[in-house]
């Protein structure tokens, strides 16, 4: 059973849960192995940025892909996480981890204040409201100079540390960031498997029907909005401690658009698609630099092509492609792999 987005709405049988565990295990293995195979600090920083984007995208996908809402202002939450963490630790010497938690809660509170009225809006009005909110926060980042350092940015943010271990280089941050990615995806997966997840999917399918079945749609919408904001906040805090310098220009509406694009390209309503979307677009954005000054055009063309031909997202697109091949080949060896791949 699928809704009009191609998003699977059935509950997950035990066999798929097993495959899911396999996927998560595979992810851990890959994470551990990559630094052994990849020595380049440049690739590490690219992967780190992908990881940070993935955290934001996973949260955003809960909102867009599963609950069927939209937000073009999530750069603000990413930024609020960075600035709360940055200001507390750099200016006031707060301990780092509690600061991250405070940032998360503060961002969540702000998300609630804006989300509660905003999510009563529909469609393009919601788009504009979130866009406007994002712009306002971005302006404040630049204006509230005593706290944020204004447009010159906030310098001297200390790197995170645990015990005696300080996360001050690309490799250590790689493990830290991807540990968070793993953890966030786990949280998202558990959420989606629960009553909450089913409620979200019901809202996406038809808000009116969900309401009539007793699902408190407005409450769920606001909650998932707040949750997605908190995901973004955590990612923002990690970014701040990693780059040790933040400035308002990072958190503009271009970034908001970029993360939503990653949700779509990866596949709305696909948890693993979030990872793929973030990875593909970040890689492409860097890789296209070989096109030198044409890289903006190349990126636009690439994005347009994906949206034209693979609107369900790259992951689902690959799946469909694979399935159609299967009809032609019917080779037994392929089937177990297909079933596993299908789990995504």
């Amino acid at each position: 059973m699928e809704n009009r987005n191609g998003c699977k709405l059935v509950d997950l049988p035990e066999s798929t849960r097993r495959k899911d565990r396999f996927s998560f295990t595979l992810l851990v293995v890959i994470i551990v192995l990559i630094p052994v195979l990849v020595e380049s600090k440049y690739y590490l920083i690219v992967l780190n940025i992908i990881g940070l984007n993935t955290i934001v995208v996973v949260g955003l996908n809960l909102l867009i892909g599963f609950a069927g809402q939209i937000s073009l202002g999530h750069a603000a939450f990413f930024g609020l996480g960075s600035y709360f963490s940055g200001i507390l630790t750099a200016n006031y010497g707060f301990p780092h981890w509690p600061a991250m938690v405070v940032a998360m809660l503060a961002t969540g509170a702000i998300a609630y204040l804006i989300g509660y009225p905003a999510l009563k809006l529909r469609g393009h009005y919601l788009v504009m409201a979130t866009l406007g909110f994002g712009i306002i926060i971005n302006i404040l980042m630049g204006e509230l100079e005593q706290f944020t350092g204004g447009h010159d940015g906030l310098i001297g943010i200390p790197p995170l540390s645990v015990g005696g271990l300080t996360f001050d280089n690309d490799l250590k941050n790689f493990y830290l960031i991807w540990a968070f990615v793993f953890f966030c995806m786990l949280v998202a997966r558990n959420l989606l498997d629960s009553r909450v997840g089913r409620a979200l999917r019901a809202i996406h399918g038809s808000e009116v029907a969900a309401n009539s079945l007793g699902v408190n749609t407005s409450s769920y919408k606001v909650k998932v909005f707040v949750l997605s904001a908190m995901f973004a906040s955590v990612s923002g805090s990690l970014y701040a401690h990693y780059i040790t310098f933040i400035s308002p220009s990072t958190y503009d509406f271009y970034y908001s658009i970029q993360v939503v694009t990653m949700v779509i390209v990866g596949g709305m309503g696909s948890l693993w698609g979030s990872l793929f979307g973030a990875a593909i677009l970040s890689f492409i954005s860097e890789a296209l630099h070989v096109a030198k000054q044409y890289h903006i055009i190349a990126y636009g063309v690439f994005l347009s092509l994906i949206l034209i031909f693979l609107p369900e997202g790259v992951l689902v697109g690959i799946q469909h492609f694979y399935q159609s091949k299967k009809l032609q080949r019917l080779i037994a060896v392929k089937t177990p792999f297909l079933l596993w791949f299908n789990r995504f």
Binding site: K41, Y42, I45, G153, D170, I243, F245, S247, T250
Partner: peptide, 29 residues
């Protein structure tokens, strides 16, 4: 023109080439 990409560009060059010095960048951020 963005700080994140500037850091990535920096790391990329430092990795890929043995450069003696750097000239740039443009924006203060």
């Amino acid at each position: 023109s963005t700080p994140t990409k500037a850091v990535m560009a920096l790391k990329k060059i430092l990795e890929a080439e043995d450069v003696a010095a750097i000239i740039g960048p443009t924006l203060t951020g």
